[in-house]
């Protein structure tokens, strides 16, 4: 239990995928202009990431390793991730058409969210078991969601600020992301309880 908690604290705060590892920056910049979209994206990513993290582990453990084709892991993981995204898309289209419309192109783009592939590969590298993989994936998504949602709220406020012309839009967004990463440096060492 303590180990799972540690993984959670580590992935959400100390080794946050966006602000400390710099993975998943494209949706971080892309879907953060509106708070509603950011919340939807976080939930969708959490769903995909937890499932794909666990199933990528299963794929690696029971297919790639026995057949000794670990060199195909990147390819295999992308396939699993794409399948999970497709599943999420189908579920979301039926259950929440509004969210489906808001997310639009970004939903299929979860496939290319490097954090999702990164989690799957890091699971193998750090030799997690099935439960640890799932917690790792969920923690990564929770950390992603946490910073994405607060970033979106910040950007909604910055949209009304008197930002110098050349810094409007993405530049000030990147400056903000940098300052957020600065704040997250405070969590350094938090996961070595």
């Amino acid at each position: 239990m303590k180990e799972q908690l540690l993984i959670l604290v580590s992935t959400v705060l100390a080794n946050n995928f966006v602000l400390v590892r710099f993975l998943g920056l494209c949706p971080f910049m892309g879907v953060s202009t509106k708070l509603a979209g950011a919340i939807g994206m976080s939930v969708a990513t959490a769903f995909v990431l937890t499932l794909s993290s666990a199933s990528a582990y299963l794929l690696h453990r029971y297919l790639l390793v026995p057949l000794q084709i670990e060199y195909l892991s990147t390819l295999g993981f992308i396939l699993v991730i794409a399948a999970m995204v497709q599943l999420t898309e189908m579920v979301m289209r039926k259950t929440s058409p509004l969210l489906y419309r808001i997310l639009g192109i970004f939903l299929p783009l979860i496939t290319s969210n490097c954090a999702v592939l990164g989690v799957a590969l890091l699971n193998i590298q750090e030799q997690h078991d099935l439960l640890q993989s799932a917690v790792y994936g969920f923690g990564a998504a929770a950390g992603f969601g946490l910073v994405l949602v607060s970033f979106a709220a910040i950007r909604e406020r910055v949209a009304f600020a008197d930002v110098p012309l050349h810094f409007r839009g993405a530049p000030i967004g990147l400056v903000t992301a940098g300052l957020m990463a600065l704040a997250f440096m405070g969590f350094t060492g938090l996961a070595n309880l």
Partner: peptide, 10 residues
């Protein structure tokens, strides 16, 4: 960069 006094986030 945020627009000066009154606009800063941090």
């Amino acid at each position: 960069l945020y627009g000066g006094l009154g606009h800063n986030i941090f």
